[in-house]
């Protein structure tokens, strides 16, 4: 069974983080929130596996 990866998994974490921030540049608070909501839905669909989603939801809660 695939588990949610919670150890480093990005080839360049600093660059990925910077790209996330860059995507929010020039967005106001409401636009940022809407952007995040769309992003979560896209990533949730890509994840596909309901068990992985549950693990991700749990990891985000705590």
């Amino acid at each position: 069974m695939t588990r949610l990866i919670l150890t480093p998994n990005l080839p360049d974490p600093d660059a990925a983080y910077a790209r996330l921030l860059a995507a929010h540049e020039e967005l106001d608070e409401a636009e940022s929130a809407a952007f995040n909501a769309r992003l979560v839905l896209i990533l949730m669909n890509h994840l596909g596996d309901p068990e992985l989603l549950d693990e991700a939801l749990k990891a985000a809660k705590t």
Binding site: A33, A34, A37, R38, V40, L41, I42, N45
Partner: peptide, 20 residues
């Protein structure tokens, strides 16, 4: 409401969101 509106915005372009 935010997720609902995000789903509607995505649904115009992406089939996965139409299912939601």
């Amino acid at each position: 409401r935010m997720f609902r509106d995000a789903t509607l915005a995505l649904a115009a372009r992406h089939p996965f969101a139409r299912a939601m």
